[in-house]
Simulated assay, not measured.
Amino acid sequence: MSLSSNKLSGILPSSIGNFTSLEELQLNNNSFYGELPLTLRNCSSLIVLDLGENGFSGSIPRWIGDLPLALLRLHQNMFSDRIPSQLCQMSGLQIVDFGNNHLSGPIPRCFGNLSGMFLDKDGMPWFETSMMQVIKGRELEFTTTLKLLANMDLSMNNLVGSIPKEITNLSGLRGLNLSHNHLTGNIPENISGLKSLESLDLSMNQLSGIIPQGISGLNYLSHFNLSYNNLSGRIPTGNQLRTLDDPSSSYLGNSELCGIPLPRNCSGDEKSQPPTTIGHREEREGVDLEKIWFYMAIMSGYATGLWGVIGVLVLKKTWRYACFQFVETVNDKVLLAIALGVARLKNYIN
């Protein structure tokens, strides 16, 4: 049953529970509101449930964990309270999309047991269906590749606490978005266990500590955002992290982070860093300025001495005559020496 993208409104009728053989229910992008009817649990064959972009409210029912769901999308509603741990009973769950709601409390640790997000999982039954998912920072429509997608979006809620280390067991997870929450603590040390991860967004939280080096080992990572947290220390290096578009934007708002690609050096890096182009230019400009002042000083001294001599000769008539007489005497002696030299040269030749 697909009734998505219409103008349907009102509460979801309890008669929906009469469709006990229903395997797919898509009511997204309408104007439904209110709580989910208890009779929906009678749809015991339901594998795809998409209620996104509506006004559903209240808690996420615990009985949803009794359904054999593979795709559960509640994106952009008004669900509140905690995420029930009963959801972890759905071993085949591949997509958990609760983004843009009012959920609170911690992320259930048992999410690490969702075997539908493991690499060696059995494939879900095939459906001629499609679903919108935010991954790699964009909202994309998945159709033929939906069967292969494993994605978890808990963004834009009021979740608190730390990121469970158990979540790193999800080796087949391709997208993880926990942004715009109130998460604290460190990024799990074993995050390299998310071997298939292509998109990771932990921005707009209160995470602290260092960035684990294991992030550089996520070989498929193409979208990465840790901005606006309280992270510190050296940024890990790795070939995959260098391929990201505008990598420096991934670390904005973390004033204690240092190292490439940020302009802030880590402690001990200053001595090993080669001089920058700006430094070369400033040094060269300093040398040129010293040369200019040196030559100006020489020229000033020469001009002062020259004008001092000329000034004395102009003002002192007797000194002027004595100077001219000295020049004439020297000139005569030089000419006489030249003449004698020439005569001796001629005699030597003859």
Rank of each mutant, 00 (worst) to 15 (best):
M1K: 09
S2M: 06
S2F: 02
S2T: 08
L3R: 02
S4G: 07
N6Q: 05
G10E: 02
P13S: 10
G17A: 07
N18G: 05
N18C: 06
L22N: 01
Q26I: 12
N29Y: 01
N29T: 11
E35Q: 09
P37H: 02
R41V: 12
R41S: 14
N42F: 09
S45L: 07
S45G: 11
S45V: 01
I47H: 00
D50Y: 01
D50S: 06
L51E: 02
N54R: 02
G55E: 09
G58S: 13
P68D: 12
L69K: 09
R73C: 03
Q76H: 02
N77I: 03
M78S: 07
D81L: 00
P84K: 03
S85E: 12
L87M: 07
Q89Y: 06
Q89R: 14
S91W: 01
N101G: 03
H102W: 00
L103F: 00
C110N: 10
F111Y: 11
N113A: 09
L114P: 02
L114Y: 07
L119T: 08
K121V: 06
K121S: 13
G123P: 04
M124P: 08
M124C: 02
I135Q: 04
L140P: 01
L140A: 02
T145R: 14
M152P: 02
N157H: 03
N158V: 01
N158L: 10
L159V: 04
L159W: 10
G161F: 13
L170F: 06
S171D: 09
G172S: 13
G175M: 02
L176H: 06
L178A: 01
S179Y: 04
G185L: 00
G185T: 08
N190F: 05
G193N: 02
K195G: 03
E198C: 05
S199F: 08
L200M: 11
L200Y: 00
S203E: 00
M204R: 15
M204I: 07
L207W: 05
G209V: 14
I210N: 14
Q213P: 00
I215E: 10
L218V: 15
L218Q: 05
N219A: 14
L226S: 09
N229R: 03
N230A: 13
N230D: 01
G233D: 08
G233V: 05
R234D: 05
R234N: 11
G238E: 12
Q240G: 09
R242I: 06
D245S: 05
D246W: 09
D246E: 13
D246I: 10
P247K: 04
S248H: 08
S250H: 00
G253R: 11
E256L: 15
L257P: 05
I260W: 13
P261L: 10
R264T: 14
N265M: 14
N265H: 13
S267P: 12
S267W: 00
G268A: 11
G268N: 08
G268T: 10
S272E: 12
S272M: 06
T276C: 10
T276G: 10
E282I: 13
E285T: 14
K291W: 11
W293L: 15
W293D: 15
M299F: 15
G305W: 14
L306V: 09
V309M: 11
V309I: 15
I310L: 15
V312E: 11
V314S: 13
L315H: 12
K316M: 04
K317T: 04
T318E: 15
A322S: 13
V327C: 09
E328R: 09
T329M: 12
K333P: 07
K333A: 11
V334M: 11
A339G: 08
L340M: 14
G341I: 07
L345W: 15
I349H: 14
